[in-house]
Design a protein around this nucleic acid. Structure first.
Length: 424
RNA sequence: GGAGAGAUGGCAGAGUGGUCGAAUGCGGCGGUCUUGAAAACCGUUGAUCUUCACGGAUCCGGGGGUUCGAAUCCCUCUCUCUCCGCCA
């Protein structure tokens, strides 16, 4: 959420910058501006009345204590008008405050200067591509067929138990999942991240803090009986650890990592691209989250991108890094880098990580602040996160790219974790 | 699931209608002392909105009510704890 004061002080800037996200903020910004002025007028008026009221109440108390009943009762008579005025102003204030808030949450985050203009994924900027794309020959199989051939994943069983998008991993498939999770967590710990095991369900406040709520509840599974949401990513509980917190500047940066199952309804997705592991309702992911001082957040973003790059390199997967264009970025992000790995049998790039700087957008919602060393005053922190990494598409690419006549070769870095170097 | 208790500042904990943004202790910060540190002593120490500033307003779990006046009384919701039951 953008800071109200900032919107008020820089209306033109906000409108101009949001154009890059293909968002016309003109109407909302002007409404906010009007309401904000009205809000302030009401507040200062109400504050005056309240001030008077407070003074009067004290006087009345004093008179009673002095036993001056009559004078006190006279004074009382004057309060009713004040009370009425205050009530009316408070009601108006609450109404306008709510209106402003409703408008405020509709504004997406301002994209960073270097975000490319554009509307669709085609407009994303390919900033790097590395790794060799394997030649698999005629007999190559897509991962869903490999999964069946080697009995690693049973998609039909998942349908029986739950529905499409809830695969059942078996044997070496299951072992491989576990190996990937451990590998990713270990790498994150080596990079200085503290491991967290968060709850898999969160309340509404948490959903709001990271930007899933309001308006995007359709993407999450909702446990209606208890009004809880299944997390779409560990970003939600982990970032919300710092909701309503003022951290010491000396404790920054905060670096957390978490493995979690992730649940996404993926409402609206259909047809192509959802085969096999490409798009699931439940999947596993290791996430990294940082809370940092504002002046360091872009440096930290680069650091996180480098971390994720190290992972795909160690797994030996061909990858590319995209700087997302304004139209493809999330509502909450200021700058996002996507990682895609090449899945050689499907012959397509699969997104496996998204690393973003949210600047103060989430922190504003979270009321996540740090105490500035100089001023000793609370200041809004910056938050970042990234997948490091999401498992299913990594697994898909590993299976497809490493298939040979002798079986599927396992990357060396995973062997200590899974205990085999080939799936036959 | 049943019964009871409770929610106050970073923490512990007092306050049960006015002088309470809130005692006290711990912690934090600054200082005195010290070669340095510890101890001791002194001082200081919440957030938000608003104002150029002085100042003003709001906040004692959330919402509503009573009252001239609410941390304190009433209603309601949420959450936490204890005991019992069930249970990985």
């Amino acid at each position: 959420m953008l800071n109200l004061r900032f919107i008020q002080d820089n209306p033109e800037l906000v409108i101009e910058k949001l154009k890059k996200k293909n968002f016309d903020a003109t109407e909302i910004v002007s409404q906010i501006s009007d309401l904000y002025k009205k809000k302030n007028e009401i507040q200062s008026q109400a504050d005056q009345f309240k001030s008077e009221m407070n003074k009067l109440s004290k006087e009345i108390g004093q008179l009673f204590r002095e036993g001056k009943q009559e004078e006190a009762n006279n004074a009382k008579a004057r309060t009713s008008e004040l009370k009425e005025n205050i009530k009316k102003l408070d009601d108006d204030f609450a109404k306008i405050d709510e209106q402003v808030f409703d408008l405020q949450v509709q504004l997406p985050n301002i994209p960073a200067e270097i975000v490319p203009a554009g509307k669709t994924p085609e407009d994303n900027l390919n900033i790097k591509q590395e790794g060799e794309i394997p030649e698999l020959g005629e007999n190559k199989l897509p991962h869903w067929e490999l999964a069946a051939k080697y009995d690693l994943i049973d998609f039909e069983l998942g349908v029986k138990l739950t529905g499409a998008g809830f695969p059942v991993y078996k044997g070496k498939g299951s072992r491989l999942q576990r190996a990937l999770i451990n590998f990713f967590l270990n790498e994150a710990e080596k990079a200085g991240y503290l491991e967290i095991q968060p709850p898999l369900m969160v309340n509404e406040d948490s959903g709001f803090g990271t930007g899933q709520l309001p308006d995007k509840e359709g993407q999450m599974y909702h446990v209606t009986e208890d009004n809880l949401y299944l997390i779409p990513t560990a970003e939600v509980p982990v970032t919300n650890l710092y909701r309503d917190v003022i951290v010491d500047a000396k404790d920054l940066p905060i670096k957390n990592t978490a493995y979690s199952a992730c649940f996404r309804r993926e409402a609206g997705s259909y047809g192509k691209d959802v085969r096999g592991l490409n798009r699931l309702h439940q999947f596993d992911k290791v996430e990294v989250v940082q809370v940092v001082k504002p002046e360091t957040s872009y440096e930290v973003l680069d650091e996180m991108v480098a971390h994720v790059e190290g992972l795909v390199q160690k797994l030996g997967l061909p990858y590319r890094i995209l700087r997302l264009c304004g139209g493809d970025m999330s509502f909450t992000s200021a700058l996002t880098y996507d990682f895609e790995v090449y899945s050689a049998a499907q012959e397509k790039w699969l997104e496996v990580s998204s690393v973003s700087n949210f600047e103060s957008f989430q922190a504003n919602r979270l009321k996540l602040r740090y105490r500035d060393e100089q001023t000793k005053k609370p200041a809004i922190a910056h938050t970042l996160n990234g997948s490091a990494l999401a498992l299913p598409r990594i697994l898909a690419a590993l299976l497809e790219n490493n298939q040979t006549a002798e079986g599927i070769k396992i990357p060396e870095v995973l062997v200590p974790f899974c205990g085999f170097d080939v799936i036959k």
